[in-house]
Design a binder for these strands. Structure first.
Lengths: 236, 236
DNA sequence: CTGTCTACTCTTGTATACAAAAATATGTTT
DNA sequence: AAACATATTTTTGTATACAAGAGTAGACAG
């Protein structure tokens, strides 16, 4: 075999901008709770911590502000967004609607491959639930929902739903620690899958709304399980 | 009355950042069609045009990218976002859902003041429609929808719905030029208002979905009425 | 001792400078 | 003449420098 000199290097170049990396890192730190709501985000401080200049830090902060994860006030710097109980409720309300919409559309548009992917994801959830592995269920649950978004065949909806889910993930994490929550979640998935496989859009929509919505006791339980600093005391 | 020396100047300081101004200007230029989809956004060029340095230009571009109005590829600059027919359809689909949700929530949560505001906005629409004033109807319509968002009492939903409406406004503008579109729009508003006033959430939701959704002939008409350059020919 | 004014410091917002990657043009080879 | 390789130019990404507003602490008056 004679030598092959690649015309164009297929190896992905360092297609990496510092600003993007930073955005990612900070996003993770915020969502994981390492940076707490209300915490100040000093540009020079972050620059020093990450070993870069203020320029990429500022760019990262701007993007985080656009996604609502941080708040920037003119000439007063950025802080990790503080969320009131009301804010949280409203975001969950929208989340439920978007996910329900995904389910409705998926029931109509899903193809065999996607159908299989959802079934598989559901099975993985079942396994994780049976072995009482919260971490595994958390991940499998995410895959299940992602598969559903894909089935809706609406890239815009998929993108928005995903980013809202991401935004809320920090608050949802604690939900699974409730006794019986995993079993209930799984049962709700079951209902969604059944409706999906039957092609019943309305049933799928309702099942999903029920699954995602935070209503009745579920809401107060969710709030109560949150670490104190996650919520702002007074109204915005 | 003796002189009042205001302790703290109530006059709003130049709370203006160049980057924010630029974002606003560029947004307007894009939404108005002055900058066409696919058009290159050269940083130095924009800086020179607006008489500022590249720094605020970059910050403005980053924010526009976050809102989806422009697309930035690493080290290849920014272009006004190109939208395919499919993209457009998907965004309208989500729009219909969000507005329908607003209507449903508003039917349950609206207060007398908001009720009056919606009624008033509806009357203004009627007047504009009767006088065949497209510009006036366009504005009154916006006020009507805004009043509805407020009635839903969900700030997050309001924000997201408004920004999507804004994003689509460029494409919607041409819709009103269709013969009979104004009359039909007004009739649909009427249905929404009736359901709202009756407190019938389901009816309000359905009426609004019908109003906002672009279905059947309406969609092909919308597409056909768009100036050619508004849409990308091939798939993304 | 308290409240207000002022000077100072710190942080943000913007401009400029520099490095590296794309895009473009030029020249060479077959 | 076409295609490839190389040099040049242009543009983006990052760092640094500078200006101006916000926050802070200290001095002074009541």
């Amino acid at each position: 075999m004679h030598e092959v000199k690649p015309r164009v290097s297929k190896i992905k170049k360092d297609q990496t901008r510092l600003a993007e990396d930073l955005r990612c890192s900070l996003e993770t730190e915020i969502l994981s709770g390492l940076l707490l709501p209300g915490e100040r985000l000093d540009e020079s401080g972050l620059a020093k911590r990450f070993g870069v200049s203020r320029t990429p830090v500022r760019e990262a902060l701007l993007q985080l502000a656009s996604s609502g994860l941080i708040e920037m006030r003119p000439r007063q710097g950025a802080v990790v967004a503080t969320v009131t109980v009301q804010d949280l409720m409203q975001m969950f309300e929208v989340m439920a609607e978007l996910e329900a919409m995904c389910a409705r559309l998926a029931a109509r548009r899903i193809n065999p491959v996607e159908r299989a992917a959802i079934a598989a994801a559901h099975e993985t959830c079942k396994t994780a639930a049976r072995s009482q592995d919260l971490g595994a269920y958390y991940k499998a649950n995410r895959v299940f929902h992602e598969a559903l978004y894909a089935g809706a065949h609406n890239a815009y909806l998929q993108d928005k739903t995903r980013s809202l889910r991401n935004r809320l993930s920090a608050y949802r994490r604690y939900q699974l620690h409730q006794v019986g929550r995993v079993a209930r979640s799984l049962a709700e998935h079951e209902a969604v899958v059944e409706a999906l496989m039957a092609g019943d859009a309305e049933a799928a929509e309702n099942a999903m709304r029920t699954h995602v919505a935070i209503q009745g006791d579920v809401f107060s339980d969710l709030i109560s399980l949150l670490p104190p600093r996650y919520l702002q005391a007074a109204a915005k």
